Simulated scan of single mutants.
Amino acid sequence: MSEYQYYEFLAVDRPLDADQLRQVRALSTRATISPSRFVNEYQWGDFKGDSTKLVEQLYDAHLYFANWGSRRLVLRLPALTLSKKTAVPYALEELLTVWTRSGHTLLDFSLECEDGEEWDFETSWELSSLIGLRAELAAGDLRPLYLAWLAALTVWELAEDDEEEYVRATEPPVPAGLGDLTGPQCTLADFLNVDPHLLAVAARASDPAPPPRGPDRRELATFIAALPVKEKDDLLLHAALGTHPQPGPKLLAHYRSTTADRTTANRQPSPRSAAALLDAAAAHRTERTRHEQEAHRTAVEERSRAAARAHQRHLDRIARDLDQAWKDVDDLISQKNPTAYDTAATLLRDLREIHAQRNTLPEYDRRAGALRAAHSNKPALMRRFDTLGVPAT
């Protein structure tokens, strides 16, 4: 199987300048490069650059996947919008790694699949379907982090067998809206192979997502007035210098996180253990399978009943004029070709069923036997009569 690798980088907050563009162009002669995007596909060879350093220094998002199963998504956000302290509780195993660099929090979602030999070449991703996660995280939506924790829990379950460890390990804070993911979050769940049954049971402890709305102007004004003077001065300084060109989202994220802390602090349920979640997912999977099997049986039975009703209507139409039906059989036999013989045999089978329903099978045997005697010199037809069980007179 030939190799395939996909690399993509996006600059969201600030496009690359001329010097930075020269730096990344030196890494690849075949890549599609613009001030905001770098993308390259490899059928052979490998990328010469350091993907992690490129995100730390230049880009805000990076996507990588290969046909042997490796997958990686790296997001860089200003630390003011998402702190390392907030994200770390969701980092389990090596599926999610969190670190800070130059005033940014970096999230590395990485998955090593074991089914690379079953790669579907129709399966692919682009950062355009995942980049919305960055804005969601900046706005305080932690569902992407919880999805990573669920994916890691599945990987952990497959790799470990220490039941006591599962009992001791508990879930991180459960964000609202797990039962109604956004488009980018659905793509992330697919990208990380999140078990849908595990997600379903995890969502039971998740409040509904609040309707999207802008901040209350009066509350926001009160919040800004209460900020430390140094924090406000730093925001204005960064905006003036262009070092952080989007102070608005950072300020709104801070405001939302503060109001969310006030409104949800008393609503967080007791954290569930990893063992409890995995057991509940197994039960959910079993129940869902039972429902699907029952639905399949019901559908099969209904199709069978519908076919029986249609067949009976067909028999009723033939039964309206049995003499004509017997004449049709004789006319078909007279055509002396296999297709006509097959049609005649099918009509004879229907006639036998009609006579059975009317308790007149002796009449059927008499008329079918007469046909057999009249056409006994036709071997191909006789074979069909034998199959039908038409008696010889």
Rank of each mutant, 00 (worst) to 15 (best):
A159E: 15
D216T: 14
L133K: 12
H197W: 13
Q185C: 15
V155F: 02
R134Q: 11
A239L: 05
P210S: 08
K232P: 00
A226Y: 03
R143H: 08
D234M: 08
A159W: 01
L137D: 07
D207Y: 09
R217I: 15
A240D: 09
A209C: 13
Q185W: 06
A200L: 09
E164R: 13
E165Q: 11
S206Q: 07
D234T: 11
L147S: 03
D162H: 07
E160N: 14
D180Q: 14
H197M: 15
L142Q: 10
A225I: 06
L237R: 09
D216H: 11
S206E: 05
S206M: 02
Y166P: 00
A225W: 04
A205G: 01
D233W: 10
G177C: 11
E157D: 14
E163Y: 06
Y166T: 00
T187R: 15
R134D: 01
T170F: 09
T243R: 15
A189K: 09
L158M: 02
Q246D: 10
R217Y: 07
E231W: 01
I224M: 12
D233P: 00
F191P: 06
N193E: 13
G242N: 12
P215L: 02
G179Q: 01
D180L: 11
V174K: 08
H244M: 00
D195N: 15
A226Q: 10
